[in-house]
């Protein structure tokens, strides 16, 4: 299958390793990955902060860029949710954007959905000999309804010990511009999340969204916890062979 990658602006700019991991993983599974270079940002920050018109213009750009894709894979649950849940709200019914999104939205997937539902794999042949804890991000959990998909993928990884995160379903406090507009509450939520993560004794915290990981990871790093963060794609992409090389 020819898969179009929507990398997202945050991953593109700050977490290119995640993008490279997605490409490596999907190619290893025998698929062709394309990267339409016109893509930029889904407009989530604008939309969530109340800037509707810029968000709508970015939605149009997205729809134009990915119109002809068989499937669009997004390694960020919040961006996938933005596209699927909020683009319809940004378009007047009957408008061009609405028509484009009607056909495009069902072809937009978070990475873990795509693996489990479309490619129908849970064992992707990965190897990752670490104690890992998974934080189910709000968009993954409540907006996309990823359910146990990420857990099934992680459980199939060789060498990986999956630990249980207390109060897992609670928000980490990132919330985009919330993290600065209400920095004190955001930090308080981040501290509690970081504490729960550290308590598990894990070496690595993973999630389906780098923005949440940037928040929790930034807190963990300030506290010098020694814990690393990794997008789930990076764990699923790693193999024994690559491990030997690094």
């Amino acid at each position: 299958m020819r898969i179009a990658l929507f990398i997202t602006c945050v991953n593109d700019t700050l977490f290119p390793d995640t993008g490279r991991a997605v490409v490596r993983l999907l190619e290893r599974l025998g698929h062709e990955v394309v990267f339409p270079t016109d893509q930029t940002c889904c407009g989530q920050m604008h939309y969530n902060t109340g800037y509707r018109r810029p968000a709508a213009r970015l939605a149009v750009r997205f729809a134009r860029t990915f119109e002809n894709a068989d499937a669009v894979v997004v390694p960020s649950a919040s961006c996938a949710a933005m596209i699927r849940d909020n683009y319809p709200r940004l378009s007047r019914s009957g408008s061009r954007l609405a028509r484009r999104m009607d056909s495009l939205a069902p072809r937009v997937y978070d990475l873990t959905e795509f693996l489990v539902d479309v490619l129908e794999v849970t064992d992707v042949g990965a190897y990752y000999p670490h104690k890992v804890v998974y934080h189910p991000t709000c968009h993954g959990l409540r907006f996309l309804g990823l359910g146990d998909r990420p857990y099934r993928l992680l459980r199939a990884v060789r060498g990986l010990e999956l630990l249980e995160l207390p109060e897992a379903t609670e928000c980490c406090g990132f919330g985009g511009t919330f993290s600065v507009k209400n920095g004190d509450v955001s930090s308080a939520m981040g501290f509690d999340k970081a504490r729960h993560v550290v308590e598990t004794g894990a070496e690595v915290l993973c999630a389906v969204d780098n923005s949440c990981l940037m928040h929790i990871g930034g807190t963990l790093s300030r506290q010098r916890s020694g814990l690393r963060t990794a997008h789930i794609a990076e764990i699923l992409a790693s193999t024994e062979k690559e491990y030997a090389r690094t």
Binding site: I7, N11, D12, T13, L14, F15, P16, D17, G19, R20, V23, F35, T37, S179, V180, K181, G183, S187, G190, F191, M214, H215, G217, G218, T219, S221, R222
Partner: peptide, 25 residues
């Protein structure tokens, strides 16, 4: 400025030398 609300309590991620799109191209 307002971004200080972030760095008061959290570290920033390291900026990579190359973006994903640079690598891809």
């Amino acid at each position: 400025g307002p971004a200080g609300k972030w760095t008061d309590t959290r570290d920033l991620p390291d900026v990579p030398a190359r973006s994903f799109r640079q690598w891809w191209n």
